[in-house]
Design a protein around this nucleic acid. Sequence first.
DNA 1: CCACAATTCAACAAAAATCAACAATCCTAT
DNA 2: ATAGGATTGTTGATTTTTGTTGAATTGTGG
Lengths: 251, 251
Amino acid sequence: MSKYETTLLQTVDMRGTVSVQELSRILGVSDQTIRRVSRPLVDRGALQKVHGALVSTKSAADLPYLARMNLNREAKVAIAEEVVKIIQDGDSIAIDTGSTSGFVAQALRNRRELTVVTNSAYVASTLAMIPGNNVSMAGTQLRDHDGASFDRSAFDVIERMQVDYVLLSASLVDARKGFLVHEQCEVDIASAMLANAGRAIMAVDHSKFERQLRKPALRQPTLKPRDYLVTDRAPPEDFAELFADLDIRFP
Amino acid sequence: MSKYETTLLQTVDMRGTVSVQELSRILGVSDQTIRRVSRPLVDRGALQKVHGALVSTKSAADLPYLARMNLNREAKVAIAEEVVKIIQDGDSIAIDTGSTSGFVAQALRNRRELTVVTNSAYVASTLAMIPGNNVSMAGTQLRDHDGASFDRSAFDVIERMQVDYVLLSASLVDARKGFLVHEQCEVDIASAMLANAGRAIMAVDHSKFERQLRKPALRQPTLKPRDYLVTDRAPPEDFAELFADLDIRFP
DNA sequence: CCACAATTCAACAAAAATCAACAATCCTAT
DNA sequence: ATAGGATTGTTGATTTTTGTTGAATTGTGG
């Protein structure tokens, strides 16, 4: 393991995409060295390489939000459009944070008169722009890479609302343990939203089925029968039991 | 995957429709390259192409707030860049709502470790994406065309913060009456921000000097001596007295 | 409908980035 | 101190990307 590896990974992951030249300037070495050092990283999938630059592929959990929105873009767009089919004009919905939620917000611009409560500033600002919507931003202090809030006031707002649907997401799905995320605060927000919502819509793209657990992960609260699961590909066989009661939809 | 892909998608999605020429200027490459890079994106449906420009698949351009951001665009971008020169890494700033504020938020992405409080969900989400920033969203219920909040909790948050600068805007400027806006709630937020800030930065483009009062307009609180006024052209003669004490900047 | 301007496309030339091989340098264990 | 191994910078051939040119196409205003 090279002595530059950590700095390299940090820099690329932080910015999403950095040119080889700039990296060589930052690390004070030749560009050839950058290529050499990055090759093993690319091989083991920690980085992605394009002509002239390195692009982060790191576990989506800690990518800048905008970079994450470009990972699996097509899948997420497809899922978002499927989710929107469930929602009707005039419905109310709670939306959690996560890149898939961002795409759902985009797609929901085709619906009118929505009542929305969310702890994601991105979702809030996207949907508040639509004339006729009623959007509440839950929370004050924003997390510094995705603009989501998990503070006390977020719960106060969520607990005051009663909504038809809640849109949830997960960092990965395990056949035995269910839907998992990395942070306790995300579970807490999901619980609060679920407690005040009619049916839940869990949106996960297929990459979440294959991903391995590397960090310790926490369970999302269990879904009720007839809640929706929206995904872009049929999940593997061994998830059948976990999803038995859910209304599964895909494009 | 090209290294320009992410920026291209972001820019087009953000603005709804961008001309090939402008994209080439933004990315610093020839227009032929824009066409080349965008072709695969168009093929896979991430973008749409028309003669002379690229259009986002999820059209956003017709939304009121974003439409307003495209009015006098160059002037507002220039002003935003001038404002950013005043702000240093690590500073704290309160930002009100308004289209110019949106551009300042964009431009502030070059600053690090900012502490920000704002009642605009758009500004909040833009700046919260930057790793290292500390952003507070003031308010819960969002106004339905620009995503700004003016409710009680907004004031609570603003009044708790003490910041170096406050960025304010105005709908029009009158030589005798000063800086004017249309809604009382906007004045109230501005007052609250001013009360807890060091120096104020008033950002207005030149069109605000010429505009006539059509609706009854309300006065923004008066600025202190040595507060900044940032604008894109020297204001007409008759404003001299009004601006006498201000530190006037333009590009 | 025609002429004029703007945009696009294809093809080629120029520039930039990559790779492999080799020489210089650094580190470390004896 | 020094040999062996690893790391780094340099060079030149190769590949990829980019800019430019001119012809074809599309849009526009009489």
